[in-house]
């Protein structure tokens, strides 16, 4: 008896199916960029790419957190509100004359704390993440108006310097501090997912929670951890947003959770969990950013087309995931 009969033969040239969605996103991104470059001369300017990052840095950070949550098979609807709450809280504390360092610390603690509480409810009481984070979303949005009913401007010198600092080459192309922060978050996120036990446990839980439990993995801790991570990323995203807008507004980032989820899905992460990459999420955010840029460049198209196109892409990628799922069976 040989074991070879148990081993399926494999075509070496075949792309493993787990990479198909990410490659599809990459292709889409390149095509869209190509279309942009061929249609508008100004599009080929490298600053256009940088601007996509500058405008979407906070989205990218939040999407990294969301990737963790979706990989476990969960979802976090509270991110938009937590972003807004963090920005509001920072603006309000700064207005009250609190030292910027202290503001940063407080702002970075609130999001994860809320995430921790949501994670605990999800894990200990076995309630669907969708409904718990919905409560979190209500709570954080309510806190925004509780802090102030109107927008609070930020005049703190540290914040303004962070907002205006340009890091660039001699030709005048530049990125903001926020972009560097976002890159740092992406790198840390990618490392944690690929090279730490926490990251692998996240994948395992998304693949089969029951198995993860029986293999003795710390399922509860990991599930709580992903909501803390998502809360932390939302908090960082909130601070970056306050750098970007230099204010805190109670109704900012409404519906942002949808953009984030769309970016993660377009980036190839499977919504049922277990499969996905932070790198894919970066591509997903870039796709969203390039769509917005293309629509801005076009001028004749209106902003609502962004939503329709994102919806269409969401449909296409969900269909792709579904087809791959069927083929696996």
């Amino acid at each position: 008896m040989t074991t070879s009969s148990l081993t399926p033969t494999r075509d070496w040239w075949r792309i493993p199916q787990r990479y198909v969605p990410v490659l599809a996103t990459l292709t889409l991104l390149l095509v869209m960029y190509g279309v942009g470059v061929s249609q508008y001369r100004a599009f080929s300017n490298i600053q256009v790419v940088f601007n996509v990052f500058i405008d979407n840095g906070f989205l990218l950070v939040v999407a990294v957190g969301m990737t963790f949550v979706i990989l476990t098979g969960g979802i976090d609807l509270s991110v938009g509100s937590v972003v807004a709450m963090t920005a509001m809280m920072s603006a309000s504390l700064l207005q009250g004359g609190v030292h910027p360092a202290a503001v940063l610390v407080v702002a970075l603690l609130v999001g994860p704390t809320l995430g921790f509480l949501m994670g605990c409810v999800i894990h200990f009481f076995d309630i669907q993440p969708f409904i718990v984070t919905l409560a979190g979303m209500f709570f954080a949005r309510g806190m925004c108006t509780f802090i102030s009913k109107s927008s609070i401007p930020i005049t703190d010198p540290f914040w303004t310097s962070m907002a205006q600092e340009r890091i660039g080459d001699p030709k005048g192309n530049f990125v903001s501090i926020s972009v560097l922060v976002a890159f740092a978050v992406v790198l840390v996120g990618a490392f944690v997912l690929a090279y730490t036990r926490l990251g692998r446990n996240v994948h395992a839980i998304g693949g089969n929670q029951q198995s993860a439990l029986l293999m003795g993995l710390p399922v509860g801790q990991t599930k709580i951890a992903v909501y803390v991570i998502s809360g932390l990323c939302s908090a960082i995203g909130g601070i970056l947003l306050s750098f970007y807008t230099l204010s805190g507004a109670p109704l900012i980032a409404v519906g942002m959770e949808l953009d984030v989820i769309a970016a993660v899905v377009i980036g190839g992460t499977v919504l049922t969990g277990g499969s996905g990459y932070v790198f894919g999420t970066v591509l997903g955010v870039l796709v969203l950013g390039v769509i917005k840029t293309l629509i801005t460049f076009d001028g004749s198209l209106n902003s609502w087309w962004t939503k329709i196109v994102i919806g269409g892409l969401l449909f296409a990628f969900i269909l792709l995931q579904r087809l791959i799922g069927i083929r696996k069976k």
Partner: peptide, 29 residues
């Protein structure tokens, strides 16, 4: 070892054997 193989189909074979006990250096697998 349970009847309905309690492993994670979405992870590699190697990971399924070692998950939770991966060889690490400074926390990195």
């Amino acid at each position: 070892v349970y009847q309905e193989v309690n492993l994670c189909a979405n992870l590699s074979v190697a990971e399924n054997i070692f998950i939770g006990r991966e060889p690490r250096t400074l926390g990195a697998i």
